[in-house]
């Protein structure tokens, strides 16, 4: 469900790839055909894809925690069952994405260990606390909306297993977005307490939401290679602008005030203007120093440790680990 904010630090060309194979590989992508696990691929392509899909999978499994904070308190049957199904989907999407990344040669367990040990990153936005039910509704609607902008773009990428996973995830997430919007409409049309609860949530969550798509193009490491290989499908600012185009009107329609007086669409350029997000905070949060980073990883580690006796009892020498096929 969540993507974006993927950081491709310091991409340097790997050791020389076989030029003939590289030409065939690039011609295939040029024709719009997908790369499959058994194809030859440049080392850099494999490395960046593992990083990207792994970060997306981690974002899903960690993303289940801030919304999961409200799973036992969802008000009424409709919200309770929807939130149970939605948080379950996040775990389900993590399972799909880890499988897609496993086809590139890294086992799920190594990926989860790297997550827990802080070696592997995940989306900035899940390191913030969900103080109220309205915070949870903000995630269900707008963070989901942001993730879908990224995922629809990535679904047109070049790696087959990731596209298959994203096709399924995007189909399943249409319910998430509508559920989230439905919740926020009821808050907007509700009592003064409900309206204020969401306005407060919007004030808290807008800055991390602007960080969600990653550093602005001016300062982010820009890689033509990853664009050519359809690993990176659009610039961070493109994604951010798409999101603002689609959702700022919907937020304002409900009578809420977005906490950035400069936020405005420049009709000539067709681009949104806004207060420059604080990219220092973004780096700090991505690298482990946000309000809930420690709790998220501690909870994930506890789930792994408490489940170890189950996995060890299930493990049998006969059914040894194998990379998924597709």
């Amino acid at each position: 469900m969540y993507g974006g904010g993927t950081t491709f630090e310091g991409i340097k060309a790997e050791k020389k790839d076989d030029p003939v194979k590289l030409a065939e590989f690039e011609a295939r992508i040029e024709r719009g055909e997908k790369i499959e696990p058994t194809d030859w691929m440049p080392a850099l392509y494999r490395k960046q894809l593992i990083r990207m899909i792994e970060q997306h999978a981690h974002s899903e499994i960690i993303g289940a925690l801030p919304e999961g904070t409200w799973i036992t308190r969802a008000p009424g049957f409709k919200r309770k069952m929807a939130l149970m199904a939605k948080v379950q989907d996040e775990v389900g999407h993590a399972q799909l994405l880890y499988s897609a990344a496993e086809t590139l040669g890294k086992s799920r367990e190594e990926m989860i260990d790297d997550l827990i040990n802080g070696k592997s990153k995940y989306s900035n936005i899940f390191n913030y606390p969900t103080f109220t039910w309205a915070d949870c509704c903000f995630i269900s609607w707008l963070v989901d909306a942001g993730a879908i902008v990224n995922q629809l773009a990535n679904a047109k990428g070049s790696y087959g297993p990731y596209c298959r996973a994203l096709d399924r995830i995007c189909a399943e997430e249409s319910f998430h977005l509508k559920y989230g919007h439905h919740c926020v409409i009821y808050l907007a049309a509700g009592t003064e307490i409900q309206r204020q609860m969401f306005q407060d949530a919007l004030n808290r969550w807008w800055p991390p939401m602007m960080h969600f798509f990653g550093p602005s193009d001016k300062i982010s490491v820009h890689s033509d290679t990853l664009m050519k290989w359809k690993v990176k499908m659009g610039s961070n600012d493109d994604m951010r602008n798409q999101f603002l185009d689609m959702y700022v009107p919907k937020i304002r329609e409900l009578g809420f005030v977005i906490p950035d007086p400069k936020l405005n669409k420049n009709e000539e350029t067709g681009r949104w203007e806004y207060t420059e997000p604080d990219w220092e905070e973004f780096k700090r949060v991505i690298n482990g120093d946000g309000p809930c980073n420690k709790e998220r990883l501690a909870v994930r580690r506890t789930a792994e440790e408490r489940g170890r006796w189950v996995r060890e009892a299930l493990r049998s020498p006969k059914t040894v680990y194998q990379m998924p096929l597709a």
Binding site: S107, R108, L314, T319, Y321, Q322, M323, L325
Partner: peptide, 9 residues
Amino acid sequence: PLDQLGTYE
């Protein structure tokens, strides 16, 4: 060894 379980399609 990794307590990783077998894989099924």
